[in-house]
Amino acid sequence: MAAAVGERDATGARRGRFAPYGLLSPGVIWLALFFLVPLASLFQMSLSAKESRFDFSPDFSWKWSNYSDAVSHFSAQFWRSFQYAGAATLLCVAIGYPLAYVIAFRGGRYRNLLLGLVVVPFFTSYLVRTLAWRTILGDDGPIVGLLQNTHVLPENGRLLATGISVVGGLTYNFLPFMVLPVYVALEKIDLTLVDAAKDLYSSGWRAFRKVVLPLSLPGVFAGGLLTFIPAAGDSSTRSSWVAPTTR
């Protein structure tokens, strides 16, 4: 493991000749064999002229038209995935940013505990959580009842199997992916900058808008990516599960 004391560069990292590759090889080989190779063969398959993807005879042609076919056949689904994922991402920002802000600036010594609370719900199974949402949003559930009584929903309106429940589920599932990067960005901000802004007679809101917000935007951007990409991939699975009819 620990090689003999070697030379170091400015960052304290060692210059190794063989040791790093030795350390890397098991994991990297695993990733190459079971991630890169299958992706490559998936790509190859995407260009084949076969009717069925379970037909494995070695036939390959550069059939790029598969791609345009896919887009034209499934454009509605693609579009819906992106819409759902986009809505979920925006909601994640709207809910996650204030939460991260409160944890970062007002959490005090409970900050780590609060961050833990954000992650804890995700230690239960995805499917079990989804079943619980079914109970909450179900036709006999408390929320639908409340909304019907207040006439927000029509008499026999429902939430389950609608776009709302899909977006709500996606937002729920990816909220931590937004909160954590935003928290990291906010946490790094040097608060003396805010003091400086106030010394220069900036109001609190203005200081937030001109100092805190721009400095935290990279976190929002990272969170947006972490939310949007998997959400777009996930909405297909989720809609078939929570909302069988919006397929």
């Binding site: 996650g96 939460l99 802000y101 409160v102 609370l117 619980a132 608060l191 805010v194 003091d195």
Partner: peptide, 28 residues
């Protein structure tokens, strides 16, 4: 931590964060 916000706004923000946590814990 001196991000200077009105009393009310600051309270509202805390309430909002509490609601967000409640949202996270509802299914649990």
């Amino acid at each position: 931590v001196s991000t200077g916000m009105g009393r009310l706004g600051s309270r509202l923000l805390n309430v909002f964060a509490g609601l967000a946590l409640a949202y996270l814990f509802a299914p649990i």
